[in-house]
Simulated scan of single mutants.
Amino acid sequence: MIVRIMGEGQLVLADSHFAELNKLDDELLAEMESGDGPGFRRTLHALLGKVRELGEPLPDDSLEPSELILPASDATLEEVRQFLRDDGLIPG
Results as ranks from 00 to 15, higher is better:
Gly92Pro: 10
Leu24Trp: 00
Glu20Tyr: 05
Leu44Glu: 07
Glu64Lys: 14
Gly37Lys: 09
Ala14Met: 10
Gly35Asp: 08
Val3Glu: 04
Ser73Tyr: 04
Pro59His: 12
Glu27His: 08
Met1Thr: 07
Gly9Tyr: 02
Asp86Arg: 15
Leu48Glu: 06
Leu47Ile: 08
Met32Thr: 09
Leu29Ile: 10
Arg4Asp: 02
Leu48Thr: 07
Asp15Gln: 14
Arg4Glu: 10
Asp74Glu: 11
Asp60Gln: 13
Gly7Met: 04
Pro65Lys: 01
Ala30Val: 10
Asp60Pro: 13
Leu29Trp: 02
Gly88Thr: 09
Val51Glu: 01
Leu68Glu: 00
Ser62Met: 13
Leu44Cys: 10
Gly37Phe: 14
Leu84Ala: 09
Asp87Leu: 11
Phe18Trp: 10
Gln10Phe: 05
Ile2Asn: 14
Leu68Phe: 03
Val3Asp: 04
Leu13Pro: 02
Met1Tyr: 10
Glu31Arg: 08
Asp87Thr: 15
Leu89Ala: 08
Ala30Lys: 04
Leu54Thr: 01
Gly88Pro: 15
Ser73Thr: 08
Pro38Asp: 03
Met32Asn: 10
Asp36Gly: 01
Ala30Asp: 05
Arg85Lys: 13
Leu29Ser: 09
Gly49His: 03
Asp25Gln: 06
Lys23Phe: 02
Asp26Met: 14
Glu27Cys: 12
Ala30Asn: 03
Gly88Leu: 05
Leu68Trp: 01
Gln10Arg: 12
Leu21Trp: 04
Met1Ser: 08
Ala14Gly: 08
Leu84Asp: 09
Leu84Glu: 12
Ser16Arg: 14
Ser16Leu: 15
Ile69Phe: 03
Leu21Ser: 07
Leu70Met: 03
Glu79His: 00
Leu54Trp: 01
Leu24Ile: 01
Pro57Ser: 06
Ser34Pro: 01
Leu13Ser: 02
Ile90His: 07
Asn22Cys: 11
Pro38Tyr: 09
Phe83Pro: 05
Asp87Ala: 15
Asp15Trp: 08
Glu78Trp: 08
Asp60Ser: 12
Gly92Asp: 03
Leu77Phe: 03
Gln82Thr: 12
Phe83Arg: 01
His45Gln: 15
Phe18Thr: 07
Ala72Asn: 12
Leu77Ile: 05
Glu64Ile: 02
Leu63Arg: 14
Glu8Arg: 09
Glu8Asn: 04
Val3Ile: 15
Glu33His: 06
Leu29Arg: 12
Met6Leu: 14
Gly49Met: 08
Met6Lys: 13
Pro71Ile: 09
Asp61Glu: 15
Glu64Arg: 10
Val12Phe: 14
Leu11Gln: 08
Arg42Trp: 07
Gln10Thr: 13
Ser73Gln: 12
Ser62Cys: 14
Glu27Ala: 13
His45Leu: 14
Lys23Ile: 12
Gly37Asn: 09
Ile5Tyr: 00
Lys50Val: 11
Gly39Cys: 04
Leu44Lys: 05
Ala19Trp: 00
Glu64Gly: 00
Phe83Val: 05
Ser34Glu: 15
Glu53Ala: 14
Glu67Phe: 14
Met1Ile: 10
Glu67Thr: 07
Arg41Tyr: 06
Leu47Thr: 05
Arg42Gln: 11
Val3Phe: 12
Leu84Ser: 12
Arg52Pro: 08
Asp26Pro: 15
Leu24Met: 03
